[in-house]
Design a protein around this nucleic acid. Structure first.
Length: 645
RNA sequence: GCCGACUUAGCACAGUGGUAGUGCACCUGAUUUGUAAUCAGGGGGUCGCAGGUUCAAAUCCUGCAGUCGGCACCA
């Protein structure tokens, strides 16, 4: 038998007979290595330790505590969970059970719903199965055999999966004790390697193959880690994220509320509206500086207008409509673009007028499915920082790059610097000829390449085929927040269709009518959503310029009331948002209350301060107190409270 | 929209068929206080909505709505 050469991560080489398994190789090196190895990487590809090695390759043995083993732990845990569920509820069908970020899930077809206590039952059964430490073994079955076995078991979903696997691929069956599953693998050497650091988290409904036309399955989500410490840390992190929930903070900080009669609609309270207006003012300045004009268009227009724009056909099921007493049907605008085209069409446009950048803080209305609503992050009525840029075809690149620069600069002002840009291409349901889509997609793809090149690797990109808007492909800007969560905010969409549909044109340099290209773009996306994201990103601890209430002046004794009023008036005159707290309470009580309300600056004044015109400043998140003169405090805080840009 | 759970005072929660409770908040009084809860007293709920079962329903049943966790959809 011939030998093959294996290269180890440290560069060492070793000759082994071709056809050796990973386990053979490990044993040949040392029994202890073989014992602690759960899988291997062959030329970087994670593989079963029982796989045979037939050619020269690099090899890396994976122990269960190695980072590479984590996905195996999770995948194995999913299999064990499936075995546990079938042991507890015979007749339940298994479907798919992949690894996801931080854990795994498995989807089951079971007539009766799982009950809340079932998670604990399944976990107990999993611990039993893992304690048996059955080895994972692999078979390759013929299609006929696999079909027959799974049909006999009543596993109809598995039959569908078998039929979907290309003929040139082996059907692999993984056994653990007497239980087995169709699976592409790989797995660790035995169930015991999963360990105990896992937890089942929740039940959920999920459609078979992710399609809402298919039957709904019952999904169980779990998380699994190599060590208990990592599991605990992860659970702690989830808890921390829950503390940032904008719905909870919005209530505690008196920013907004929702109520039954207006599902998906925000009641903005004074403090929340202040934040909203601060964001709009900031954006308005940025857009003016970037050469945009701001307009406002009607909230409702007649239905035939939306038929002409293509919205009725392509977006109608998301639109609110109302029939007036004269029987005319009106639609609430779900987008601002057709309105902006009407403004564009007023007055003949020359190529010299382009690019024309029309912006609107327009409130759009979309009938979102009830199950999609989620606090401020998914509402039915929201304000976009929307703009439409009318250009000639050869201005696409330059304008998209300008938009990109503006987007990135603005995100930076909020501290968002980790950005992912996704390119979404033509969906099935769309308007416009394919050659126009070809052009639009190619343009955005070029823009994306250029942006990526300029970013020196700070920006990552990805492709989402079929996810574009019905009128054009889009770039979607995804921000990573302070605790690593991703939020989609900005968008840039190239549209060769809408202007033409609505009869917009310009006169080119040869006196001919030409249809402009439109770029649709938003930066915050939805002000409502962006506010929610900011609340969660900052955990309510806004930078001074954004905080709805910036300063509270609290008295230590009522003798200082007059001085407190004077201090507050000085801050108000300097343009800061300030309140006084003259209540008959101890200063500790007041400090606690305003700290919980996340007021960034608490100024305490007593008789010690009044005579010498000084203040004691306490910043949110710090126990420290700084005693300085009133004028110095005014200067420092006023300058800090200035919006960026 | 689909699957599951939930809905009791402003907020957080307890209460599984027999007169609705606790903590915080709120109100009143006392206290004038130096940086995360001063003390005492008091008021407040047709238990999400609509039906039904029962001598009796927050509690059991049905329908609806909203919320939450997912799925699907999406800014």
């Amino acid at each position: 038998m011939t030998d093959v050469t294996l290269t180890f991560p440290d560069g060492a080489k070793r000759q082994v007979p071709a056809g050796s398994t990973g386990l053979d190789v490990a044993k040949g090196i040392s029994p202890s290595l073989a014992k602690r190895t759960v899988a291997m990487q062959i030329d970087g590809l994670l593989s079963d330790l029982s796989d045979v090695i037939t050619k020269d390759a690099s090899i890396n043995f994976v122990a269960r505590t190695d980072a590479a083993a984590l996905e195996l732990i999770r995948h194995d845990a999913a299999h064990v969970m499936a075995e546990a569920v079938q042991a507890l509820w015979p007749g339940t069908q298994v479907t798919i059970g992949p690894v996801i970020d931080n854990g795994f899930f498995y989807d089951f077809a079971k007539a009766e719903p799982f009950l809340p206590d079932d998670l604990a039952k399944i976990e107990r059964k999993m611990h039993e199965i893992i304690a048996k430490n059955a080895p994972f073994t692999k078979d390759v079955w013929s299609r006929d055999k696999a079909r027959q076995v799974f049909r006999d078991k009543g596993e109809l979903f598995k039959l569908e999966l078998i039929d979907a696997i290309p003929d040139n691929q082996d059907l692999k069956i993984y056994h653990q004790g007497s239980w087995f599953d169709l699976c592409r693998g790989p797995h660790m050497t035995s169930t015991g390697a999963i360990g105990k650091a896992f937890k089942l988290q929740k039940f959920a409904g999920a459609y078979w193959r992710g399609d809402s036309n298919n039957p709904q399955l019952q999904r169980i989500y779990g998380t699994a880690w190599a060590t208990q410490e990592e599991l605990d840390a992860y659970l702690k992190q989830i808890e921390e994220a829950e503390k940032r929930d904008h719905r909870k903070l919005g209530r505690e900080m008196d920013l907004f509320h929702f109520q039954e009669e207006a599902p998906g609609s925000v009641f903005w309270h004074a403090k929340g509206w202040t934040l909203f207006q601060t964001l709009i003012s900031y954006m308005r300045r940025q857009q003016q500086a970037a050469g945009y004009v701001e307009v406002n268009t009607p909230d409702m227009m007649e239905k035939h207008f939306w038929e002409l724009s293509g919205h009725w056909e392509n977006y109608g099921e998301n639109m609110f409509t109302t029939t007036l007493p004269d029987e005319r049907v009106f639609c609430c605008k779900p987008m601002n673009c057709p309105g902006h085209v009407q403004i564009y069409k007023h007055g003949l446009k020359s190529y010299r007028d382009l690019p024309l950048k029309i912006a609107e803080f327009g409130k759009v209305h979309r009938y979102e499915p009830s199950g999609a609503l989620h606090g401020m992050l998914r509402v039915r009525h929201f304000t976009q920082d929307d703009a439409h840029i009318f250009i000639t075809e050869n201005q696409i690149m330059q304008e998209c790059l300008k938009i990109n620069d503006l987007l990135l600069a603005i995100y930076k002002d909020f501290g968002f610097e980790d950005i992912v840009i996704k390119l979404s291409t033509r969906p099935e349901k769309r308007v416009g000829a394919d050659h126009l889509w070809d052009k639009a997609e190619a343009a955005l793809s070029d823009v994306l390449d250029e942006v990526k090149r300029q970013s020196n690797g700070r920006i990552t990109t990805s492709l989402q085929p079929g996810e574009g808007a019905f009128y054009g492909p889009k770039l979607e800007y995804v921000l990573r927040d302070a605790i690593g969560r991703d939020w989609q905010c900005g968008t840039t969409q190239v549209d060769f269709n809408l202007a033409g549909r609505l009869g917009a044109f310009y006169i080119d340099e040869h006196s001919e009518k030409k249809t402009p290209v439109m770029i649709h773009r938003a930066i915050f996306g939805s002000l409502e959503r962006f506010t929610g994201i900011l609340i969660e990103n900052f955990a309510g601890h806004f930078p001074l310029w954004l905080a709805p209430l910036q300063v509270v002046v609290a008295t230590i004794t009522s003798d200082a009331d007059a001085y407190a009023n004077e201090v507050a008036a000085a801050f108000q005159a300097a343009g800061l948002r300030v309140e006084t707290d003259l209540r008959n309470e101890k200063i500790g009580y007041k400090v606690r209350e305003h700290s919980l309300a996340k007021v960034p600056v608490i100024i305490a004044v007593g008789m010690r301060d009044a005579g010498v015109r000084q203040v004691s400043i306490r910043r949110l998140g710090s126990q420290e107190q700084t005693v300085i003169g009133l004028d110095d405090a005014l200067g420092a805080l006023t300058s800090e409270a200035k919006a960026p840009g």
